[in-house]
Nucleic acid binder design. Structure first.
Lengths: 220, 220, 220, 220
DNA sequence: CATGAATGAGGCTTCATTCAT
DNA sequence: CATGAATGAAGCCTCATTCAT
């Protein structure tokens, strides 16, 4: 279902909606930046982003006057993905399945996108990134926490921020080697990977989510 | 026992122990680098380190021909601290207390030292850093895991690498604002800090360590 | 004929002709580099070239990303001068006069320009320089050689490459002291110069060109 | 026939002959410098020379306070080789054979030794190098020139400096690619080499030497 | 508006040279 | 004497940012 093209026209500083070509440029640059961040890290040069986008540097600067602005715009996009995962999760009846879905999806995103990971963990960017993330996903996280407490026999002091913390923690389990160029979520399940044996990401996901129960489940 | 009073006389490339003045300078530079890493991150300039150390850049380069060498030397020091914590832990009878002590100490070090945190989490340095850490602390971690399994009713698939993973995860709970220069473990227990309410670091430490039990403890 | 008045609008990497201001700057830098090479050698610093040109280093790097590119651009200019000499020579009826004119002109250029000499003789640059020179002047040289063979009673095994070799050899007769800044072709004809009495460059030019004859001329 | 060890003891600045170990060091350094010059050019670093020699930089500086001194010492050695060739040549009856032997040997040395070539051609070193060469070989060159004039029907204006000029010119025929590591006089006779077809170095040697005759020889 | 040219500060690194050990 | 440590100037290059076209 393609989004209606004229919806949510990002306004410029003065508040006027952008001209059509300007808006298109903004999208092109943003997509290029996302690719570059994902591949080369969040400190790649504006020049590189411009080249990837096929525009001049000036254009990048016009739309995103500094790196922080650019970072926030990129996060805005990714946060929408998290929101979507949250919405999916909230549709589930079982609060534990919901929590696992939500936390897992949000954590996995970091493992697959170096840029995102840096924005949420790297000291140089985290103040821009984490605040935004928090602002946006807190409502859903709190709702999920409430359900866990009320219907899931979770720890009574559980908060939505705990879920955010788990997401960050799991996101730090990224492979300690440069991503292999191969397709698919190369990541902690690589048998050769240090996160490693015996089970990798899914294992730790279960571990920390289950740690939130008041009476933990019997293990198989 | 004819050992010189100084321990571990770092040898140079040819294997000869360093001259006295050279060794002293090496220490000075290393200490300066540690301070600068802690305060300004692991990508601070060699010039800055030299200035902080009160020597010329050339001296820094002589001892540490590239950043990787410097990083490894810094980690070597911190790893010794972790080793000490591991030794302390292994002296305890209760394996859970031991695990908590070990994991907690290692994780806390990251929260207090931005440089260390970057070396263990940042994509740009992690391949140098994490490998070294792993190499050095794996034996102690495996021994602790064994005790947890044998005498502590831990999950039967628990490994030493799981403990390392917990250390990394907890290390990612750093505050999302630049450290305040103040003394003491400013960190997740700051009431205003996003890791946050209600209990911060200690809380998550308990959470993830307890998650390793086969039959988790009754919560108070 | 709608050609722009400027000849050979040097295209950039993408193939687009340079903007007017960029082209102007390119010329300015190139001229400065030529002067600096001539005076201080082909390994003078980019900073120096920039200063001489009155631009920032970045500008030099933008137009000439590495020294090799710069060298080739400079040679390109000088090679055009050689081409002109070749054209003049080919207009003469007497093939020996033509050869002498061509070889003499090309060799003299080296004696007058330290930069050019280095580009054609110095181990560090010669692979960039000589190849280009060869590529460009070979056709004219071969044509001259053909005329010498067919109408000049030259050695029957004479080739255009022989002429190139003579040019290089004569170019190595440069004075062994730093050029005096004075005007005019200071060079081997300086009576105090080591190339020497009694006749210097012209003498050796005659010598080696005449060496190509099958039956050498009667000497006066 | 081993040279008597105590002969020609190079005196130090004060004129005292060097101590035995100091002399040995001097030789070691000189040999190392020669190797490094030959392989990496005459501008290789003192540090590299020291390493190659297995001594400290300080030792190199003690024996050769600056590069010029070192260059002259190296040339001194090579000039002895030229002297030997001159002596051989002067033992021949045929003055043309003698000239060819002498000029050929001296030129070939340059083709085989990048360092020597640079010392005699590169603007940065030539003032130190060429002057010394000239000073030392002029007597033999003049004598050979005299014999050519008197008994060889050479040009009547021929001088010893002409022979030196030929040596330089032929030395400039070095390959325009980095030397192949292979043994033997890789050089202009390489069929793939630009000096080239059809005959390379020997061909040009004959060419320029024969150019000195008053009545050149009939060509086969 | 879009472009990409220009700028120069700042990081990296090497090396000639001096000097303490 | 020999050593190799220390120094710092100087070259290399990149990039954030501004601005003329």
């Amino acid at each position: 279902m393609p989004q209606p093209p004229e919806h949510s026209p990002v306004p410029d500083a003065v508040g006027r909606p952008l001209r059509r070509d300007a808006r298109r440029n903004r999208e092109v640059v943003l997509a290029a930046a996302r690719r570059m961040f994902a591949e080369h890290g969040a400190d790649c040069s504006f020049e590189d982003i411009a080249r990837e986008a096929g525009v001049g540097v000036g254009t990048v600067y016009r739309r995103f006057p500094d790196r922080r602005t650019l970072i926030e715009a990129i996060l805005e996009q990714r946060v929408e993905d998290v929101d979507a995962a949250a919405a999916d999760a909230l549709r589930l009846d079982d609060p534990w399945a919901a929590a696992r879905l939500f936390v897992g999806a949000a954590a996995r995103m970091q493992l697959e996108d170096r840029g995102l990971r840096e924005l949420l963990h790297d000291h140089r960017f985290v103040s821009a990134g984490l605040a935004l993330l928090r602002r946006r996903i807190t409502p859903a996280a709190e709702e999920l926490a409430r359900r866990l407490r009320d219907h899931g026999a979770a720890r009574t002091d559980l908060t939505g921020q705990d879920l955010v913390a788990l997401i960050r923690m799991l996101g730090s389990l990224a492979p300690d080697r440069p991503e292999t160029a191969g397709p698919g979520p190369s990541g902690p399940d690589d048998p050769d990977d240090p996160v490693g044996p015996p089970a990798g990401f899914e294992r730790y996901l279960d571990l920390v989510v289950d740690a939130l129960r008041r009476e933990p489940p019997a293990r198989p």
